[in-house]
Simulated assay, not measured.
Amino acid sequence: MTGEARIERVVTSGTFSLDGGTWEVDNNVWLIGNDSDVLVVDAAHDAAAIMAAVGERRVCAIVCTHAHNDHIDAAPELARLSGAPIMLHPDDRMLWDMTHPDVAPDRDLTDGDCLSVAGAELWIHHTPGHSPGAVCLYAPSLSALFSGDTLFHGGPGATGRSYSDFPTIISSIRDRLLTLPADTVVYTGHGETTTIGAESPHLEEWLARGH
């Protein structure tokens, strides 16, 4: 008996670099799976730590919510250790190439794709704004959304750097995420979780921020 799908978190530490700046960051790496199979969301900083959490399980995919370096820097090494394919939306390929010019992702993610692990379906929502190819993974059976850096506890992801756009991220959140059930737990790329219901009332505040 391998059990139903569950969610585990690994926190890794490293740096985020873009536009000539570098910042220390802690990243959430999410594992979705059971006792035999697991899917990794965002291979950040430390492939060995991620593999330690995976244990003897088979990694069926390494899914990148976007290609900022802090979310993908350990992806090629994790792929080498696990044999799993790396998946990324093609609109973020230019960001990927800044970090990994000699290694390509294995598969493209597209809006509406469905990935399966341990009996759970994870639907890909293309949610540009933080980056052009940002995606979120929605798992209805787990009441879970893996939002990367699109939606956090307290608001949208940052849009002050290259390839980001505030009106676009607000549209993505309004049209693709706040339409999900209110009790959906949002598993973010950094920091604590939240819920769709907790964030929905603040949309007007976020819109006002953009003016």
Score class of each variant (00 low, 15 high):
59 V>H: 07
113 D>M: 10
141 S>A: 12
90 P>W: 10
152 F>T: 12
53 A>G: 04
156 P>Q: 13
73 D>Y: 02
132 P>L: 01
34 N>Q: 04
146 F>K: 00
71 H>Y: 12
103 V>A: 12
189 G>D: 08
21 G>L: 08
65 T>C: 12
35 D>E: 13
156 P>N: 03
30 W>G: 03
169 I>F: 01
94 M>N: 11
1 M>I: 13
9 R>A: 06
166 F>W: 11
62 I>Q: 03
90 P>R: 15
149 D>L: 01
202 H>V: 01
18 L>T: 12
114 C>W: 09
132 P>M: 04
199 E>G: 09
200 S>L: 14
154 G>Y: 07
3 G>M: 05
100 H>Y: 08
138 Y>H: 15
74 A>H: 01
46 D>G: 01
69 N>M: 12
53 A>V: 07
94 M>L: 13
13 S>Q: 11
9 R>H: 06
207 L>N: 11
9 R>S: 06
205 E>L: 15
187 Y>E: 02
81 L>F: 00
29 V>D: 03
111 D>Y: 02
120 A>R: 01
149 D>Q: 09
118 A>F: 04
94 M>T: 13
211 H>I: 12
51 M>G: 09
169 I>Y: 00
98 M>H: 10
11 V>P: 05
15 T>C: 08
18 L>D: 03
143 S>T: 13
174 R>W: 03
36 S>M: 05
190 H>T: 13
29 V>L: 03
111 D>K: 06
177 L>Q: 00
192 E>A: 13
126 H>E: 09
206 W>R: 00
124 I>N: 09
23 W>Y: 10
173 I>L: 07
68 H>I: 14
102 D>K: 08
75 A>P: 03
70 D>V: 06
61 A>W: 12
119 G>D: 01
96 W>V: 00
197 G>N: 08
17 S>G: 07
14 G>V: 04
29 V>M: 01
168 T>R: 09
127 T>Y: 08
124 I>K: 02
188 T>R: 03
1 M>R: 14
100 H>K: 09
198 A>Y: 07
165 D>L: 06
49 A>P: 00
191 G>F: 02
154 G>I: 05
39 L>A: 10
177 L>T: 00
99 T>F: 01
169 I>Q: 02
126 H>F: 07
107 R>F: 11
126 H>T: 12
1 M>K: 10
168 T>E: 15
160 G>S: 14
130 H>C: 11
173 I>Y: 02
91 D>N: 12
123 W>D: 07
111 D>A: 15
35 D>Y: 03
158 A>G: 14
4 E>A: 14
115 L>Q: 04
80 R>F: 09
182 A>C: 06
61 A>Q: 13
89 H>D: 15
80 R>M: 07
211 H>E: 15
34 N>T: 07
83 G>H: 06
198 A>D: 15
107 R>K: 14
28 N>P: 04
51 M>H: 03
200 S>P: 01
107 R>I: 13
20 G>K: 06
120 A>P: 02
171 S>G: 14
133 G>C: 02
99 T>D: 05
84 A>I: 08
35 D>W: 01
168 T>W: 02
16 F>Q: 09
140 P>Q: 02
136 C>Y: 00
123 W>T: 10
171 S>E: 15
200 S>K: 14
48 A>V: 11
201 P>C: 09
158 A>K: 10
97 D>P: 05
98 M>C: 11
147 S>A: 15
10 V>K: 02
